[in-house]
Write a protein that binds this DNA or RNA. Sequence first.
DNA 1: AAACAGTCCAACCGCCTCTAG
DNA 2: GCTAGAGGCGGTTGGACTGTT
Length: 268
Amino acid sequence: MGRAPCCDKIGLNKGPWSPQENRILADFIRMNGHGNWRAVPKQAGLLRCGKSCRLRWLNYLRPEIKHGNFTSEEEDTIIKLHQLLGNRWSAIASRLPGRTDNEIKNVWNTRLKKRVSRMELDPVTNHSKSPKAEHNLILLDYSHSSEKSPSMEEGNSGLIQAKYLVDSPTRISNSSNTLYDSYNLSSGILSSINSIDSEFVNGDSSLSLDWLESSCTNSLDEPLDIEDDTFIVENQDYATEKSTHEVMWKYSSNWEAHYFTTFQKMIS
DNA sequence: AAACAGTCCAACCGCCTCTAG
DNA sequence: GCTAGAGGCGGTTGGACTGTT
């Protein structure tokens, strides 16, 4: 026996919403808000289930919703965010003001997945199909930084510590294994993502997050708490086999970006 | 003009997570 | 700690629309 339905659906309308239903729901929520979605249709006089009302409001009727086609900038942002976050549509939507998870999911499934595929990227992982790359993270001397950023001067230095080396560090030179910057980004994640214009060719965000969690501590030598708001942008240069990792997380309600460098062993 | 194929997208479904009791 | 109810989320579907033959 399956789960009980969310509400008694006998006699309730299904399918597309009529203009009159839209008006009733929008007016009701503007006047009363929505304390309890299941109570909304009854109180508003709608023959709909509460879930349907919630979806209609969130995806269509909310005043802040942008209607109309996505701009190419928005589509590019979705592609980049999808590389970082996968099919976490609500997380992607939270970084695209005025766009809903449902809309973004539709755009991805109907257009962007194909575009990524044409760009020779794996449509599931967004990883480059050629050449193959193997994560071979080699880190890092975090303990010194050539420049002090504002956040470091405020005592937040050393937020990332590499606990161990994943593979032989023989290729590392002093000039390239440096944690070289750390700063606050009060304007949020999008400004940072948009500032990276190199091709996103690699990066398994889940693998990287696992690695980050098991490898790094904060400045108090506590394990990093990887939350939804934490993720990595990996930006690889195949010519030098060098990757710049940009790790983002919230610190005191501001976004912080932390940069460090790894190498990747290429597989022919 | 009609039939068919492909595309788009609003809406539904069911599972998961959170929270109050 | 357990349970039930409610919201949140991602996958899927079906109908409308558009393009092609």
